[in-house]
Design a protein around this nucleic acid. Structure first.
Lengths: 195, 195
DNA sequence: TTTGATTTTGAGCGATCGCTCAAGTTAAAA
DNA sequence: TTTTAACTTGAGCGATCGCTCAAAATCAAA
């Protein structure tokens, strides 16, 4: 009894997420989303409740995807730092051309939202903290495997990694900087190891 | 012959700039600007032409202000690196609480605008490149004074500084991170010196 | 083949957007 | 004092915003 859904929820979330990632939350209109997903407003609102609801789901999907890619990169390498470098290379070189932005969608969210959009601000902060916690476990593992000193805590390494990664992504977001990507990634890991 | 302007142009630009810096271009409405500047739409449009025109002037004002503060910090110290550290400390600690955002307004602009707003994108990129050029002259000076090695070019130092600074500002934009500012700034300059 | 719960559709709502301009106000020049 | 160019005012324009909902379409169960 009933009519079946005519769309694949995950696919819609992914498509909407690409738009949000590229243009930001405010600059993406519901008409943009309707065109990109080929859905009528009624269907979107029945499925996601609001533009904000769809955005939340897209942001969570992005965070999960990134954690998945990072996990995969770690598992494919014997040492943690190689896995991290592989992940960074994938994000900033291999997948860079088909991504909607050089910037991390989570960081873009953190930058865009203020106290005026409390729910979205809190969500983006929570997801960023969750990612930081994941990174911290990885750096703890790196220290156990003697890849890094224990002069700094794993959390301090995780903070430094995020600062470098975020700054690098912001820099590579500028026009005509792609050729610098490889050597700047090398520089990032070299400086990490000497901390 | 005529009526005099009832507002101080620089003051209006500064006030509008604070709003734009905090909320971003898209999320700042012309009504917000009217309230903040206590001007009626007609006066704003007579003076600046458009919301975009006002934003451009505010962004240029911001860039000029930052270059001025950096110049001042450099002049007040014998060595360039001390001047840079003083500037970073001012931005991220001393002036942090009264600033509209921990993020650099130029970087926020770079993050927000896409090819859909070509004029604003180009302006923000140009201003960022101008700032990079200024930093490069400073690092050249630092090398001449034997504060830094010449293994890297001055431009490479400038790039690294921007990456670190941007990443750090993004990190300190997260809630409850202010206590970390001082030691992260130290870490930033320590890693810069051993490049 | 009905029935009926579920989903899709799209016209269009009220709100807000960036912005305009005719009318009013101001003050220097005549 | 009168004139007049410059500036301010604010009602409100057309466009677009996020979103709603009655009607049509759809399909599993009866």
């Amino acid at each position: 009894m009933a009519n079946k859904l005519k769309f694949e929820r995950n696919e819609v979330v992914r498509t909407a997420g690409q738009l949000f990632w590229q243009k930001g939350f405010n600059a993406t209109s519901t008409r943009d989303l309707q065109n990109a997903t080929n859905m009528r407003p009624g269907s979107i609102y029945a499925a996601f409740g609001s533009k904000e609801g769809l955005y939340c789901e897209a942001l969570k999907d992005y965070a999960q995807l990134m954690e998945g890619q990072l996990s995969q990169a770690i598992n494919e390498h014997n040492c943690v730092l190689d896995g991290l470098a592989s992940f960074v290379t994938r994000v900033l070189i291999e997948d860079a051309d088909c991504a909607p932005s050089r910037l991390c969608m989570l960081i873009k969210a953190n930058n865009e939202f203020t106290q005026n959009e409390p729910a979205l601000k809190v969500l983006s902060v929570d997801l960023a903290n969750e990612f930081e916690a994941f990174l911290t476990t990885l750096f703890k593992q790196a220290q156990h495997q003697n890849e890094l000193s224990t002069d700094l805590s794993a959390l301090e390494y995780a903070r430094y990694f995020q600062i470098q990664f975020t700054g690098l992504r912001s820099y590579l977001n500028r026009p005509d900087t792609q050729a610098l990507a490889s050597s700047l990634i090398d520089q990032m890991f070299a400086s990490l190891k000497q901390l």
